[in-house]
Simulated assay, not measured.
Amino acid sequence: MNQLRVLLVDDDPLVRTGLSMILASTDDIRVVAEASDGDEAVPAVNRHAPDVVLMDVRMRRMNGLEATAALMALADPPKVVILTTYDLDEYVFDALGAGASGFLLKECSPQEIIDAVRLVAAGEAMLTPSATRRLIGQFVATRTNPRRRQARAALASLSDREREIVTTVAQGKTNAEIGAELHLSEATVKTHITRVFAKLDATNRVQLTIFAYEAGLVSA
Rank of each mutant, 00 (worst) to 15 (best):
M1C: 05
M1D: 05
R5S: 08
V6A: 01
L8R: 08
V9E: 01
D11R: 02
D12H: 15
P13Q: 03
P13C: 07
L14Y: 10
V15H: 01
R16D: 01
G18Q: 10
L19W: 05
S20L: 06
S20C: 13
I22V: 15
D28H: 14
V32D: 08
V32E: 13
V32Q: 09
A33I: 07
A35N: 03
S36C: 05
S36M: 14
D37P: 07
D39S: 09
P43Y: 01
V45K: 08
N46V: 06
N46D: 13
H48F: 15
P50H: 07
D51T: 11
V52K: 02
M55N: 02
D56P: 00
V57W: 01
R58T: 07
G64C: 06
L65T: 14
A67L: 04
A69M: 11
L71E: 09
L71Q: 07
M72E: 11
D76N: 15
P77F: 13
P78K: 11
P78F: 05
P78Q: 07
V81A: 00
I82D: 01
T84C: 00
T85S: 13
Y86Q: 15
E90H: 08
D94E: 15
L96I: 06
G97T: 00
G97H: 07
G97I: 03
A98K: 10
G102Y: 02
L104T: 05
L105R: 12
L105A: 09
K106V: 11
E107I: 12
C108A: 14
Q111W: 06
I113L: 09
D115G: 00
D115P: 01
V117W: 04
R118W: 07
G123F: 14
L127G: 01
P129H: 03
R134S: 03
V140Y: 00
V140Q: 09
R143P: 00
R148F: 00
R149D: 14
Q150F: 02
R152F: 05
L155M: 14
A156V: 08
S157R: 14
S159I: 01
I165V: 09
I165M: 11
A170T: 02
K173Y: 08
T174R: 15
A176L: 13
G179T: 04
A180T: 10
A187G: 09
I193N: 09
V196P: 02
V196N: 07
K199V: 05
N204E: 13
N204V: 12
V206I: 15
Q207P: 05
L208C: 11
T209L: 08
I210C: 11
A212Y: 03
G216K: 04
G216V: 04
V218Y: 03
S219M: 05
A220F: 04
